[in-house]
Computed example of a mutant assay.
Amino acid sequence: MRMWRWLAVLGLMALAQGAAAGTVLIVGDSISAGFGLDTSRGWVALLEQRLHARKPQSSVVNASITGDTSANALARLPALLAQHSPQLVVLELGGNDGLRGQPPAQLQQNLSQMIDSARASGAKVLLLGMRLPPNYGPRYTQAFAQVFTQVADDKKVPTVPFMLEGVGGVPALMQADGIHPNQAAQQRLLDNVWPALEPLL
């Protein structure tokens, strides 16, 4: 009987350690997928290294896909939540919606639904904000940027107002297309995200 009790205690300890460590699920587009980069040195890989140094049992699942829109990500999120049971979901989306000129209201609805789904699964959520180049016109770029502020306020989720702060528009930190951060920018991206992400772990 004592042996069974001891095994039960060990099992509970293992479960507690697993829950404490948790899984961070990144659902994003090319910025997090590491388009044009050595993905082992992208910001998500750097995040994984930092987490492992602090919480060796933690894990990071990068479910980002280059070219993904918020609608694409919304459709595949339920399967990701069921498969990985994340402690934290990081949403890095919207850039492709904006570059395609899709309605900001649709982006807002998709992000809101994703937050609801993630929370229903028991996960916390971090929303990473994005902005568009000025050539899309002030009316559209302002409406697009406002989506992230509005969603964060409505859903009471922590947010990084602009993930590419200090990177976007800086030629030395951008690839030749002027859209995707280069290798030198990846540490800065992690540093932009980390202050909002760390308290959620």
Rank of each mutant, 00 (worst) to 15 (best):
D97M: 12
S117V: 08
Q183F: 15
L200R: 06
A71N: 06
D177Y: 01
D38G: 01
R54W: 14
G168S: 09
A63P: 10
L74G: 09
M130W: 06
Q150L: 13
P161Y: 11
Q142L: 13
L46D: 00
R188F: 01
R131C: 02
P161H: 08
L12D: 09
L47W: 06
A172D: 12
V61C: 02
H84P: 00
N72L: 10
L93V: 04
N72H: 11
V125H: 13
S30A: 09
L74A: 09
L77V: 05
S32D: 11
Q83C: 05
I115G: 05
Y136C: 07
F162V: 03
T69S: 07
A53T: 11
L12H: 15
V24H: 12
D154A: 15
G67D: 12
L15D: 07
T159S: 07
R139Y: 14
P133H: 12
D97G: 13
T69V: 02
V89D: 02
V193K: 00
Q83Y: 15
L81H: 03
A176C: 08
P195W: 00
M1C: 09
E48A: 08
Y136F: 13
S70K: 04
S58N: 04
N72W: 14
F148L: 08
A123I: 01
W4T: 04
Q102H: 13
G98K: 03
M13I: 07
